[in-house]
C-alpha cells in the first residue's frame, strides 16, 4: 500500500502573492523523496499542498495538477478531508494532543472520525503503530499516561505512530527533526528507512546530510530573489544531486557556497 504522486505545473498562492511557481515532478512509490533549499523557498508550502493542508491558511489556493493514483487532488469533487486520510503528515514540532493519553493519541485519527472498533482491534492498532514508529518498547507500560509527558523525540515518534495508525498511502514530513537533538534525530532517520518499505515518504529538511542519508530522490528549491516565487531548480536521484548535480546553483547550495 503505497502510491506515487504526479505533479505538473503547480502554482501556489497566498492571496495574490505567488509563493511557489511551476513545479512539476513525479514522486515514486515506496521511496523517500527529500526537498532541500533555503528558508522561504516554498518547500514546506509545496509539501502542504500535497495533502491540501495549505488551504487551512485563509487565502491560500493552488493552480495546476497533483495526481495521486489516477485522481486529481484538486478536482472539485474531491473532499480535502478524505485526501488527508490517505496522505498523512508529520509536523516540524511534535504536536501530540495534550488532552489525550499515549494510547488515545495513537487512536486519535480513528476515534476522531468516529470509527467504532472493538477493544482488541484498537489494542492491535495501537501496538502495530507504536511498533511501526519504534516506540512500543519505550511506552508499552505507560500507555495511559499523557502524550505530553514524553521526551521531544518520543513525542515526534508518537506523532508518526498517530499518522500511520490511519494507514495512509503517503507520509509527508515537514522538517520532522528540526526540533530534536541528534540522538532523537538518528532514531527518526532509522525509522524513515524502515517505513520506506510500506509508505511513500516525502520529507522537507534543512539538513543536507539528512537528505543525503535518508532519501532516494532529492528536489532542490530556490528563489531568484527575495519576494520572488520559489521554484524547483532540480529534481534527481539523491546520489546524483549530491555528487554531480545538473544545475550550478544546486552545487553552490550543497557545497555551502550559498544559502
Amino acid at each position: 500500500m503505497a502510491t506515487s504522486i504526479d505533479i505538473s505545473d503547480l502554482n501556489i498562492y497566498y492571496g495574490d502573492f505567488l509563493a511557489v511557481e511551476g513545479v512539476g515532478m513525479t514522486i515514486r512509490a515506496r521511496s523517500v523523496t527529500a526537498f532541500i533549499g533555503p528558508s522561504g523557498c516554498g518547500k514546506s508550502t509545496f509539501l502542504r499542498s500535497l495533502n491540501r493542508m495549505h488551504e487551512v491558511i485563509p487565502g491560500a489556493r493552488v493552480e495546476g495538477k497533483v495526481v495521486v493514483d489516477g485522481q486529481s487532488l484538486y478536482d472539485p469533487s474531491v473532499d480535502p478531508v478524505a485526501v488527508r486520510r490517505q496522505i498523512g503528515m508529520v509536523f516540524q514540532r511534535p504536536n501530540p494532543f495534550p488532552t489525550m493519553s499515549i494510547y488515545e493519541n495513537v487512536l486519535a485519527g480513528n476515534r476522531l472520525n468516529s470509527k467504532r472498533m472493538k477493544k482488541a482491534e484498537a489494542d492491535d492498532i495501537v501496538e502495530r503503530s507504536l511498533r511501526g514508529a519504534n516506540l512500543w518498547t519505550e511506552v508499552k507500560d505507560r500507555l495511559g499516561k499523557p502524550g505530553m509527558g514524553l521526551s521531544g523525540g518520543q513525542q515526534q515518534r508518537l506523532c508518526i505512530a498517530r499518522a500511520i495508525a490511519v494507514e495512509p498511502q503517503v507520509l509527508l514530513m515537514d522538517e520532522p527533526c528540526s526540533a530534536l537533538d541528534p540522538i532523537s534525530t538518528a532514531a527518526i532517520e532509522d525509522l524513515i528507512h524502515e517505513l520506506k518499505s510500506d509508505y511513500t515518504i516525502v520529507i522537507v529538511t534543512h539538513n543536507m546530510q539528512q537528505a543525503a542519508r535518508v532519501s532516494d530522490d532529492t528536489g532542490f528549491f530556490n528563489l531568484k530573489a527575495a519576494g520572488e516565487p520559489g521554484h524547483l531548480v532540480e529534481f534527481n536521484a539523491t546520489s546524483k544531486v549530491f555528487s554531480n548535480p545538473d544545475d550550478p546553483s544546486t552545487e553552490a547550495y550543497i557545497s555551502g557556497r550559498f544559502g
Binding site: M1, A2, T3, S4, A29, R30, D69, Q71, S77, V78, D79, A82, R85, Q86, Q169
Partner: peptide, 9 residues
C-alpha cells in the same frame, strides 16, 4: 502503485 485504492469519497 502497489494497491488500487477505492476513492475514499
Amino acid at each position: 502503485m502497489s494497491t488500487t485504492t477505492t476513492a475514499p469519497s
